[in-house]
């Protein structure tokens, strides 16, 4: 069981990362990553909604008629997203104000529907929950890395803490959406290159193992 959970976590965090491999949830990556704090809140919101949405949908999957499958998925996922929105509005009004419409827009994040349809619809509740957590964390890790780069270069700070002196000229472009395009593209390029290199190594090792051993000289 532990091994299975670890394998699901590895899938969501790296080998099937929602940003690098599935290329899902890119819109919010562009929208919220100019500020690390907002990014962390967004990542937590997505992780919560994906995990509990997948758990619920997996638990009731045998009751859902095929004709209304997607409607019910949207209903369940919206339930968790609106819950996050209500809690933020009541208990963290400053963050709620800063995130504005983005919290409500978590429902349009393709990761939620993607995992509900691709995993929760065919698996048991606990693995579906772990898959939701893994994908939320995988999404959050990439988003946070991009947000750290953008906030540092755009403001000279991380989490609002100034890290450089007055000599630093902020890169205004890093605060605007286009910079997220560059950084996501760079991150995709890097991860694909690493993946291709690992694949090539694996192939070479397989080929070496399958090749006949050279004949011994007499």
């Amino acid at each position: 069981m532990k091994g299975k959970n670890a394998a699901i976590m590895k899938e969501g965090l790296w080998t099937n990362n929602p940003i690098f491999v599935q290329v899902l949830g890119i819109c919010s990556t562009l929208a919220v990553t100019n500020n690390v704090r907002n990014t962390l809140i967004m990542a937590l919101g997505v992780t919560f909604a994906t995990a509990f949405g997948s758990l619920t949908l997996s638990a009731i999957k045998n009751l859902i008629p095929r004709k209304v499958r997607m409607i019910v998925q949207v209903l369940v996922l919206s339930f968790y997203v609106i819950l996050v929105d209500i809690v933020l509005r009541a208990y963290a009004p400053a963050i709620s104000k800063q995130l504005g419409p983005y919290v409500g827009l978590i429902i349009t994040n393709c990761i939620l529907m993607g995992r509900a349809e691709a995993y929760a619809a065919a698996n048991k509740p606990w693995p579906s929950f772990v898959d939701g957590v893994a994908n939320g964390l995988g999404y959050g890790a990439v988003l946070t890395a991009i947000a750290v780069a953008r906030e540092f270069l755009g403001f000279g700070s991380v989490l609002g803490l100034r890290l450089v002196g007055d000599w630093f000229t902020p890169w205004t472009i890093m605060i605007m959406a286009p910079s997220a395009f560059f950084l996501v593209a760079l991150a995709l390029w890097g991860s694909k290159s690493l993946g291709a290199r690992a694949e090539a190594k694996k192939k070479a090792a397989k080929a070496a193992a399958g090749a006949p051993a050279p004949a011994a000289k007499s």
Partner: peptide
């Protein structure tokens, strides 16, 4: 299909309505 959709909508929307009512005074105070 009709019965399931109705029950599912009621089951998920009712707690949200309750949560909204419960937090309304706090949101107004904010």
């Amino acid at each position: 299909v009709v019965l399931f959709t109705f029950v599912a909508c009621a089951a998920f929307i009712a707690p949200l309505a309750l949560a909204n009512e419960f937090t309304k005074p706090r949101v107004e105070a904010n």
